[in-house]
């Protein structure tokens, strides 16, 4: 793919986003459903951490971070923002195996753009942004109520860490979903991803044993989704450590991009069209 092709594809992004909004405008009931489930999820989440912090007022990390009620409330908001943005931008990866095994990738392959890019862009789900808004409200509430300090620079770094971290995590899942070229439908892999995100992404990871932390940092980098951005925005870790995290996430993005390209190209040679 040439440089010109990449630029042309990036220029298409606003149109894909516009189509995504038009789609939810066409299916308003689905939008209300998303709002309802987001609210219920958030209420359960708040209840969970409410119970924890009632028992233990401060969670002490294995490192230097301690998590009080304010930080945990911020983490709740950050998790909502991260999941909402993930649902908006990365919804397509959960459909890769479905396209490969049931629908067919032909309609993407005949267009002059990268197929995975098209799958992701076609599946952009603007409904996920509702969760981002709800999470944003939660973040503002935690800052205003608990007197947390976040500087514009730390917010920029935190958002950067969130975007790069999500890319690292979801590119890994994309690679696993592409195994459908050989394995057929593999919903089991997606179930693992859900379990990991639900059980670890919404926890202050640094209260875990160091081995688990490394696992969640280098193997399944869910730590980057909400914990790292929270720590960066609230200045809970030094700048050098922030840069270290962003560097690792960027490295993971590059590695998984290369692996994804290799798997996709090999898979295509193995591809058997759906319906002849």
């Amino acid at each position: 793919m040439s440089y010109k092709d990449i630029i042309r594809q990036l220029r298409l992004l606003p149109d894909y986003i516009r189509i995504s909004f038009l789609q939810i405008a066409e299916n308003k009931i689905q939008l209300f459903g998303a709002f309802f489930t987001t609210s219920i999820n958030l209420a359960l989440y708040i209840l969970f951490w409410g119970v924890i912090t009632y028992q233990i007022p401060v969670l002490t990390g294995f490192g230097w971070v301690t998590w009080g009620r304010g930080e945990l409330t911020f983490l709740i908001g950050m998790t909502e923002v991260a999941w909402g943005f993930g649902a908006f931008a990365w919804m397509g990866i959960w459909q890769i195996h479905w396209y490969i095994t049931e629908i067919g990738i032909e309609t993407f392959q005949i267009r002059p753009a990268g197929s995975i890019y098209q799958i992701l862009a076609t599946s952009l789900w603007a409904g996920g942004l509702i969760q981002v808004v709800v999470g944003g409200i939660m973040l503002s509430y935690s800052v205003l109520t608990f007197g947390l300090v976040a500087t514009p620079f730390s917010i920029i770094l935190g958002v950067l860490a969130l975007l790069i971290g999500q890319a690292a995590l979801y590119l890994l899942w994309s690679c696993l979903c592409c195994l459908a070229f050989w394995m057929g439908k593999n919903e089991g892999i997606l179930a693992i991803s859900d379990a990991l995100e639900y059980n670890f992404a919404r926890m202050p990871i640094d209260v875990m044993p160091i081995g688990v932390q490394y696992f969640l940092l280098f193997v399944f980098p869910v730590i980057f989704i909400s914990t790292v951005p929270t720590m960066i925005i609230l200045n809970l870790i030094p700048l050098s450590f922030t840069m270290f995290y962003i560097g690792i996430a960027s490295l993971l993005v590059i590695i998984w991009l290369i692996v994804l390209r290799i798997i996709w190209n090999r898979g295509l040679k193995n591809y058997q069209p759906v319906g002849g």
Binding site: I19, L22, E26, I110, P112, A113
Partner: peptide, 29 residues
Amino acid sequence: IACAMRYGVVFGQRTLLWTHVPVLESLKL
């Protein structure tokens, strides 16, 4: 990609258009 710029394909059993948005939006893309 270079070839796809120069050919067109119609699969009778598959759609190239977004099912839920006006046809014109797909064509504009």
